[in-house]
């Protein structure tokens, strides 16, 4: 088939229109929501308060995961030292990081000097490096306080496999990226979409890979990262 095809649309849609007893409308006015409880959560919170809530909820996740998830609030001046500590906390091994200029801006060049940097031009080698990585490092594009979620928005240099394959994960959460909840995340995606920007993937992540499929016993690291650490940076 040709790229960008829609097959069987006419018969399928017209069947639905018949069932609905009218022609397909040219426009539908969304009635809006009859109430807005989702907008009330953490309403009016400052960035510092949202960071506290993010941290608090990450600590709840930590307790629920038997310590597999952790978070600390730090200042930018301590970022390099803390990243260095976290990249040996669960043993040593290969590191993979995004190709992201912010690492250099934040003084992480030296800490990440041995890391494999995702380089799209190298093709599948990136995926193999991610598969064998002991640590992955990323920066949250948007952070949700209510669920302690970080977000990665697909872009060249930020290979998807590097977000899901490493054994341990370190995520830098700039305080300025924290919003109350998924509601604001969805607002951002809505705005982007209105401008014609639809990234190939947007991942909201609030934990490490887990499953309760064996007698409802929670186990960690079924596929992707076993441990996840957030570094919430209060002055970024």
């Amino acid at each position: 088939m040709k790229k960008g095809q829609i097959l069987n649309r006419e018969s399928f849609i017209s069947n639905l229109s018949n069932i609905l007893g009218r022609e397909m409308p040219k426009e539908v006015v969304h009635p809006g929501l009859s109430s807005t409880p989702h907008l009330e959560i953490y309403k009016g919170f400052t960035q510092a308060q949202l960071a506290e809530e993010f941290h608090k909820n990450a600590q709840v996740n930590k307790a629920g995961s038997g310590g597999k998830i952790d978070s600390v609030i730090i200042e930018k001046k301590d970022l390099a030292k803390t990243v260095a500590e976290k990249l040996v906390e669960h043993g040593t091994g290969p590191i993979i990081a995004w190709n992201d200029e912010r690492f250099a801006q934040w003084g992480l060049t030296d800490v990440l000097k041995d890391a494999y940097v995702w380089t799209d031009e190298k093709g599948r080698e990136n995926v193999d490096k991610a598969l064998n990585a002991h640590y992955g490092v990323c920066v949250s594009d948007l952070s949700l306080a209510e669920t302690a979620s970080y977000t990665v928005i697909d872009k060249l240099g930020k290979g998807r496999s590097s977000n899901f394959l490493p054994l341990n994960y370190v995520c830098i959460v700039p305080q300025s990226t924290i919003v109350p909840r998924l509601t604001q995340g969805m607002q951002k995606l809505h705005e982007m979409s209105k401008q014609g920007i639809n990234p190939a993937a947007i991942n909201f992540i609030c934990g490490s890979s887990s499953s309760s499929d064996i007698e409802l016993n929670k186990v960690w690291g079924v596929h992707g990262p076993i441990r996840l650490t957030y570094l919430i940076v209060s002055d970024l």
């Binding site: 995702w118 380089t119 799209d120 031009e121 190298k122 093709g123 599948r124 080698e125 990136n126 995926v127 669920t147 979620s149 697909d154 872009k155 060249l156 290979g159 998807r160 496999s161 998924l182 995606l189 639809n198 990234p199 190939a200 993937a201 947007i202 991942n203 909201f204 992540i205 609030c206 934990g207 490490s208 890979s209 887990s210």
Partner: peptide, 18 residues
């Protein structure tokens, strides 16, 4: 929330390794 909430929007950027 589940650990992963993902939105997929079609094909990836030209030149992406995955």
């Amino acid at each position: 929330s589940t650990s992963y909430t993902t939105f997929v929007n079609g094909i990836t950027e030209e030149g992406a390794a995955d």
